[in-house]
Simulated scan of single mutants.
Amino acid sequence: MRDDTGAGVRAVGEDGDGERRGLPEARVRGDGGKREYGGKPSGSASPGGHGRADPTGGGSSHGGPSGDGERRDAPREDGRRRGSPPAVGLRGVRVRFRSRQREVTALTDVSLDVAAGEFIAIVGPSGCGKSTLLKLLAGLLTPTSGEVLLHGEPVRGPRHDIGFVFQRAALLEWRSARRNILLQAEMRRMPGGRARRRADELIAMTGLAGFEDAYPHELSGGMQQRVALCRALLHQPPVLLMDEPFGALDALTREQMNRELNRVWRETGTTVLLVTHSISEACYLADRVVVMSPRPGTVTEVIEMGLAPERDYTQTMGRPEFARATSRVRALLGGARGN
């Protein structure tokens, strides 16, 4: 069974929608020449690139104010130097599940590269294999064909160098917020002093100061998800996988958590892959938005956001590139529903 605490991984037999699956027989393979929004080749990141594309046509964004007066940070380079391997690589991945009653192809022909420090959001219709992609990267599933890579190395089993945040916070009711965070350290046998110092850093970073000793029933849904995020980041994983972590929150709390996640990503430099059904959430948080087709899922299009890492929520919602990207995602998903 899967360990929903995010502190470890187990064998798995169901997809992100809770439907029981047979054992996978598969892997997944590339997008075969699909184009990014704006006419760029899609399907892979550019680990060697240093700038960010600006859909307004103004070129890469550098430090200093932009044309609309908003301060734009210099582009992140976290691990994107020429010659460094992608943090995440999918090569022609295909996943097929078999049971006694039927055979289901969940993913087909999926390829994607993600640079170190990049934030990728994955959107698509329910049942298209978004959660399956995350489980492949965590080593919880084996592809039927194709290759899954983390930092250039094939994923051949459960990985201990990733963090995983699920839709449910899955906190232990008899442990305080701090002790729920430190559960990760206990399972990984991290040195106690180091783990406690790291927990204190994360508690301060996520606004949990003053609630360290509170129990889950004393915390709001947003605070519980903050605890789950701290627990996933305690061991400083280079890659963080997030499967609909804010789906159960109300709109205002979700917006606040979007702001928090953007700040945590900038401060930690972690590579993030986020599965979400919220188009605005995907376009606000991500460097690139991966749009998937209905099952069998494949990459329909990769949309480059071209936004500075530090993003004011209200101002970002009003930017023309944000409006174009959200409209494009809606058009792609609307077309998918019509097929």
Score class of each variant (00 low, 15 high):
residue 123 V to S: 04
residue 27 R to D: 09
residue 261 L to Q: 09
residue 106 A to L: 01
residue 321 E to Y: 06
residue 231 R to F: 07
residue 159 R to G: 09
residue 136 L to T: 11
residue 12 V to L: 15
residue 233 L to N: 02
residue 242 M to F: 05
residue 271 T to Q: 00
residue 249 L to S: 01
residue 186 E to N: 04
residue 334 G to Y: 06
residue 56 T to H: 02
residue 190 M to Q: 14
residue 295 R to Y: 12
residue 294 P to F: 15
residue 227 V to L: 06
residue 312 D to V: 03
residue 274 L to W: 00
residue 191 P to R: 06
residue 316 T to S: 12
residue 237 P to W: 06
residue 15 D to T: 15
residue 230 C to R: 03
residue 289 V to S: 05
residue 144 T to W: 00
residue 326 T to C: 14
residue 240 L to I: 09
residue 28 V to W: 11
residue 211 F to L: 04
residue 186 E to T: 01
residue 141 L to E: 14
residue 34 K to N: 11
residue 72 R to A: 09
residue 256 Q to K: 13
residue 326 T to V: 13
residue 183 L to D: 07
residue 256 Q to W: 05
residue 312 D to I: 08
residue 50 H to N: 12
residue 332 L to G: 07
residue 321 E to Q: 15
residue 304 E to K: 12
residue 63 G to Q: 08
residue 248 A to S: 14
residue 325 A to N: 13
residue 253 T to M: 09
residue 309 P to N: 04
residue 257 M to C: 11
residue 256 Q to E: 02
residue 121 A to L: 03
residue 327 S to F: 05
residue 223 M to L: 04
residue 84 S to R: 02
residue 119 F to K: 02
residue 106 A to S: 14
residue 51 G to R: 13
residue 28 V to Y: 10
residue 253 T to H: 03
residue 22 G to D: 08
residue 275 V to G: 11
residue 74 A to Y: 05
residue 289 V to G: 04
residue 70 E to M: 00
residue 151 H to P: 01
residue 68 D to R: 03
residue 118 E to T: 07
residue 46 S to M: 01
residue 37 Y to V: 15
residue 63 G to T: 10
residue 89 G to T: 13
residue 213 D to W: 00
residue 52 R to C: 05
residue 14 E to H: 12
residue 151 H to I: 00
residue 2 R to A: 13
residue 54 D to A: 15
residue 67 G to H: 10
residue 112 L to E: 07
residue 25 E to D: 05
residue 72 R to M: 07
residue 34 K to E: 14
residue 33 G to N: 14
residue 165 V to S: 08
residue 143 P to D: 02
residue 37 Y to E: 15
residue 39 G to F: 04
residue 243 D to S: 11
residue 162 I to R: 01
